Amino acid sequence: MREISAVRLQLHLLAVYILLGAGGLMMIVGFFGCFGAVRESQCLLASFFACLLIIFGAEITAGVFGFLNKEQIAEEVQKFYSSSISDTSNPNGTIIASIYHKTLNCCGSSTPEVTSVLCADVPEDTQDCLVAIRDFVNEKLHIIGYVGIGIAGVMIIGMIFSMVLCCAIRNSREVI
Rank of each mutant, 00 (worst) to 15 (best):
I28C: 01
R170V: 12
E3D: 14
L45S: 00
L14A: 15
G30D: 08
Y100D: 04
S172T: 06
C129G: 04
E174M: 10
L13A: 14
I95P: 08
P123F: 09
C51A: 08
V29G: 05
G33H: 00
V7G: 08
V122S: 07
R134S: 09
V77P: 05
E59Q: 15
E139F: 06
M155F: 10
A168Y: 14
G158N: 03
A22G: 08
L9D: 05
S109I: 02
T111N: 15
V77H: 04
V147L: 12
V29D: 06
G66H: 00
C166G: 03
C43Q: 11
V122G: 03
G21I: 00
H142T: 14
F67S: 01
Q127F: 01
V16A: 13
I96M: 04
V137A: 12
V117W: 02
C106V: 01
K70L: 09
V38T: 05
K79R: 13
Q72G: 15
K70R: 14
T115R: 02
L25A: 06
A6T: 12
V131L: 08
F161V: 13
M163K: 08
I151A: 03
A15F: 13
Y17E: 06
V117M: 08
V64T: 06
S47W: 09
G93D: 04
S116I: 09
G24T: 04
G158Q: 05
G24H: 01
R173N: 04
T94V: 14
E76N: 15
Y146S: 08
A132N: 07
A152V: 07
I149G: 03
L130N: 15
I144A: 08
G150W: 04
E71S: 12
G21P: 00
E59V: 09
C106H: 03
S5H: 12
G63H: 07
A120I: 08
L44G: 00
I133N: 02
S116V: 11
A58P: 01
S82M: 12
I96L: 10
F80C: 06
G24K: 01
C106K: 05
H142F: 14
N69F: 07
Y146L: 14
I54A: 13
A120F: 11
V114K: 12
S82W: 10
L13M: 15
S5T: 09
H12N: 15
C167W: 05
T103G: 09
R134V: 00
I73S: 03
S84Y: 06
S41C: 09
L20Q: 08
M26P: 05
N69Q: 12
R170I: 12
G33I: 02
K70T: 09
L165K: 02
S82A: 15
F49D: 02
H12T: 15
A50M: 10
E71Y: 06
N92Y: 14
L130D: 13
Y81R: 03
E71I: 06
S82L: 14
S172I: 07
D87E: 11
G150Y: 04
A97F: 07
F161D: 02
I73H: 00
I85W: 04
L68G: 05
H12G: 15
